[in-house]
């Protein structure tokens, strides 16, 4: 058995996989992030449905309203989930254990981003069909293109949540600070996501929604690049 060493490329992948598997196992055993995310997303959907009196609305109005509600629910659910996961990391000081380790910081960012992305997608797996039912949307959508738009937007939100969540964790601040930091910066994603989804719900394609899908892609790339570049500097107290 050899002593610990700085990782080679294979070692980084093994370490990152082990961390991802450990976090996944914890989430499956506790549901500490996913359960509040699902609850929050459902509440947003139900409250919106009741407040806007959906049965009284015409199909065009419902279709116009749905994208904004959907992306609001996604954004807030992700905020709740990522803040919760990082808060538990901090409270149990697992976060410090990770910072102590020689694991490459970009790899650590990638693992935490992937976890945030998967949590978001898991919520959407339930949220999107429910939105279709609640808002009585036409089933003949370009589902693959909608999935791609959701993937791009959720990836961008997860990157922001990972970077800024780590910053607030290192500063010893909680969810309130994370909301203040994330929501303004997430606005381009939410707007682009809503505009793209609106076009898709109207029976259009991603090409019809131009330039908003490109904005989603650009914000994802930008947020990932910023995360990879800045993650190290936001970590240590």
């Amino acid at each position: 058995m050899s002593a610990g060493a700085a990782h080679g490329a294979g070692g980084v992948a093994r370490a990152a996989s082990a961390l991802f598997a450990a976090d996944l196992r914890r989430e499956l055993r506790t549901g500490e992030a996913l359960v509040p995310m699902l609850m929050f997303a459902m509440i947003v959907l139900v409250v919106a449905g009741v407040t806007f009196n959906l049965p009284e609305m015409g199909p065009d109005d419902r279709r116009r309203l749905a994208p904004g509600i959907l992306w609001t629910a996604i954004a807030f659910a992700m905020l709740v989930g990522q803040a919760r996961a990082l808060l538990v990391d901090r409270d149990e000081e697992r976060w410090q254990g990770l910072l102590l380790s020689p694991l490459d910081r970009t790899a650590l960012f990638a693992v935490k981003w992937l976890e945030g992305l998967l949590l978001g997608l898991a919520v959407e797996l339930l949220l999107v069909p429910l939105t279709v039912v609640f808002f009585d949307l036409p089933p003949g959508l370009h589902w693959g293109q909608l999935a791609l738009a959701l993937l791009l937007g959720t990836g961008g939100l997860a990157a922001l949540g990972t970077l800024l969540g780590s910053l607030t964790t290192s500063l010893g601040r909680g969810e309130a600070m994370l909301s203040i930091l994330v929501l303004p910066v997430a606005s381009p994603i939410l707007i682009a996501g809503s505009m793209t989804t609106a076009k898709l719900l109207a029976g259009g394609t991603l090409a019809d929604a131009s330039p908003w899908p490109a904005v989603l892609l650009a914000t994802l790339g930008l947020n990932l690049a910023l995360g990879a570049l800045l993650f190290e500097s936001v970590l240590v107290e």
Partner: peptide, 30 residues
């Protein structure tokens, strides 16, 4: 480093915790 807190994952087993940290430190072997 051993500080005031354990840095352990409360919902993992004792063995899973040690295996995770061994991977994080790039320990080769079983």
């Amino acid at each position: 480093f051993l500080g005031h807190r354990s840095f352990l994952y409360e919902h993992l087993t004792a063995k899973e915790n040690l295996e995770l940290y061994a991977h994080l430190y790039g320990v080769a072997g079983d």
